[in-house]
Amino acid sequence: MESKFYEEDKLLIFKITEEIDDFSVQKIRRRADYEIERYMPKKVIFDFNSVTFMDSAGIGLIIGRYKFAKMLGGTVELANLTNSIKRIFEMSGILRLIPITNLETI
Protein backbone atom coordinates (compact mmCIF):
# COMPACT_ATOMS: atom_id res chain seq x y z
CA MET A 1 0.00 0.00 0.00
CA GLU A 2 1.15 3.51 -0.80
CA SER A 3 -0.17 6.68 0.76
CA LYS A 4 -0.11 10.40 0.29
CA PHE A 5 -1.30 13.17 2.58
CA TYR A 6 -2.41 16.53 1.19
CA GLU A 7 -1.97 18.96 4.06
CA GLU A 8 -3.98 21.88 2.64
CA ASP A 9 -7.08 19.70 2.04
CA LYS A 10 -6.46 17.40 5.00
CA LEU A 11 -6.89 14.61 2.47
CA LEU A 12 -5.26 11.20 2.98
CA ILE A 13 -5.15 8.86 -0.01
CA PHE A 14 -4.32 5.18 0.31
CA LYS A 15 -3.46 3.36 -2.88
CA ILE A 16 -3.86 -0.33 -2.11
CA THR A 17 -1.43 -2.37 -4.18
CA GLU A 18 -1.95 -5.86 -2.75
CA GLU A 19 -4.66 -8.50 -3.17
CA ILE A 20 -7.14 -8.04 -0.33
CA ASP A 21 -7.90 -11.14 1.73
CA ASP A 22 -7.93 -12.19 5.36
CA PHE A 23 -4.13 -12.51 5.30
CA SER A 24 -3.12 -9.23 3.66
CA VAL A 25 -5.79 -7.18 5.39
CA GLN A 26 -4.07 -7.26 8.76
CA LYS A 27 -1.07 -5.30 7.51
CA ILE A 28 -3.20 -2.85 5.52
CA ARG A 29 -5.38 -2.20 8.55
CA ARG A 30 -2.44 -1.50 10.86
CA ARG A 31 -0.79 0.88 8.41
CA ALA A 32 -4.05 2.71 7.61
CA ASP A 33 -5.00 3.20 11.25
CA TYR A 34 -1.53 4.43 12.09
CA GLU A 35 -1.67 7.07 9.37
CA ILE A 36 -5.26 8.12 10.05
CA GLU A 37 -4.35 8.68 13.67
CA ARG A 38 -1.19 10.55 12.73
CA TYR A 39 -2.68 12.91 10.12
CA MET A 40 -6.26 13.25 11.41
CA PRO A 41 -7.54 13.69 7.83
CA LYS A 42 -10.87 15.33 6.99
CA LYS A 43 -11.20 12.88 4.14
CA VAL A 44 -9.70 9.44 3.48
CA ILE A 45 -9.81 7.97 -0.03
CA PHE A 46 -9.00 4.34 -0.74
CA ASP A 47 -7.81 3.92 -4.33
CA PHE A 48 -8.49 0.42 -5.68
CA ASN A 49 -6.89 0.99 -9.07
CA SER A 50 -4.12 -1.58 -8.43
CA VAL A 51 -6.22 -4.13 -6.56
CA THR A 52 -6.45 -7.32 -8.64
CA PHE A 53 -8.36 -9.35 -6.06
CA MET A 54 -10.65 -8.72 -3.11
CA ASP A 55 -12.88 -11.00 -1.05
CA SER A 56 -15.17 -10.18 1.89
CA ALA A 57 -12.17 -9.21 4.01
CA GLY A 58 -12.27 -5.92 2.09
CA ILE A 59 -15.72 -5.13 3.48
CA GLY A 60 -14.53 -5.40 7.08
CA LEU A 61 -11.43 -3.42 6.21
CA ILE A 62 -13.40 -0.47 4.83
CA ILE A 63 -16.12 -0.49 7.53
CA GLY A 64 -13.41 -0.58 10.20
CA ARG A 65 -11.50 2.39 8.69
CA TYR A 66 -14.78 4.26 8.20
CA LYS A 67 -15.58 3.93 11.89
CA PHE A 68 -12.07 4.89 12.92
CA ALA A 69 -11.82 7.92 10.62
CA LYS A 70 -15.30 9.06 11.66
CA MET A 71 -14.38 8.88 15.31
CA LEU A 72 -11.52 11.26 14.55
CA GLY A 73 -13.76 13.61 12.57
CA GLY A 74 -13.13 12.39 9.02
CA THR A 75 -15.00 10.68 6.19
CA VAL A 76 -14.10 7.80 3.84
CA GLU A 77 -14.55 7.48 0.08
CA LEU A 78 -13.67 4.75 -2.43
CA ALA A 79 -12.14 5.20 -5.88
CA ASN A 80 -11.42 3.16 -9.01
CA LEU A 81 -13.50 0.10 -8.13
CA THR A 82 -13.50 -2.73 -10.66
CA ASN A 83 -16.84 -4.42 -11.38
CA SER A 84 -16.28 -7.41 -9.13
CA ILE A 85 -15.02 -5.28 -6.23
CA LYS A 86 -18.00 -2.97 -6.65
CA ARG A 87 -20.35 -5.97 -6.62
CA ILE A 88 -18.89 -7.16 -3.30
CA PHE A 89 -19.29 -3.72 -1.71
CA GLU A 90 -22.82 -3.40 -3.11
CA MET A 91 -23.85 -6.73 -1.59
CA SER A 92 -22.73 -5.60 1.84
CA GLY A 93 -24.71 -2.37 1.70
CA ILE A 94 -21.77 -0.18 2.73
CA LEU A 95 -22.02 2.01 -0.38
CA ARG A 96 -24.99 3.66 1.31
CA LEU A 97 -22.55 5.06 3.89
CA ILE A 98 -19.35 5.30 1.90
CA PRO A 99 -19.52 7.04 -1.47
CA ILE A 100 -17.59 6.23 -4.62
CA THR A 101 -15.54 9.16 -5.83
CA ASN A 102 -13.67 10.02 -9.01
CA LEU A 103 -9.92 10.04 -8.68
CA GLU A 104 -7.05 9.95 -11.10
CA THR A 105 -4.88 7.26 -9.62
CA ILE A 106 -1.93 8.65 -7.63
Partner: peptide
Protein backbone atom coordinates in the same frame (compact mmCIF):
# COMPACT_ATOMS: atom_id res chain seq x y z
CA UNK B 1 -27.57 -15.28 6.53
CA UNK B 2 -25.99 -12.09 5.18
CA UNK B 3 -24.10 -10.11 7.85
CA UNK B 4 -24.15 -13.00 10.32
CA UNK B 5 -20.71 -13.53 11.84
CA UNK B 6 -19.41 -15.04 15.07
CA UNK B 7 -16.20 -13.03 14.78
CA UNK B 8 -17.16 -9.34 14.48
CA UNK B 9 -14.14 -8.43 16.62
CA UNK B 10 -11.87 -9.59 13.78
CA UNK B 11 -13.70 -7.23 11.41
CA UNK B 12 -15.41 -10.13 9.68
CA UNK B 13 -18.42 -8.93 7.70
CA UNK B 14 -20.58 -12.05 7.67
CA UNK B 15 -20.82 -11.87 3.87
CA UNK B 16 -18.78 -14.98 3.01
CA UNK B 17 -21.66 -17.37 2.32
CA UNK B 18 -23.66 -14.64 0.56
CA UNK B 19 -20.73 -14.03 -1.80
CA UNK B 20 -20.24 -17.77 -2.45
CA UNK B 21 -23.95 -18.11 -3.26
CA UNK B 22 -23.98 -15.13 -5.56
Amino acid sequence: EPLYTTKPNLERSGMGFTIMES
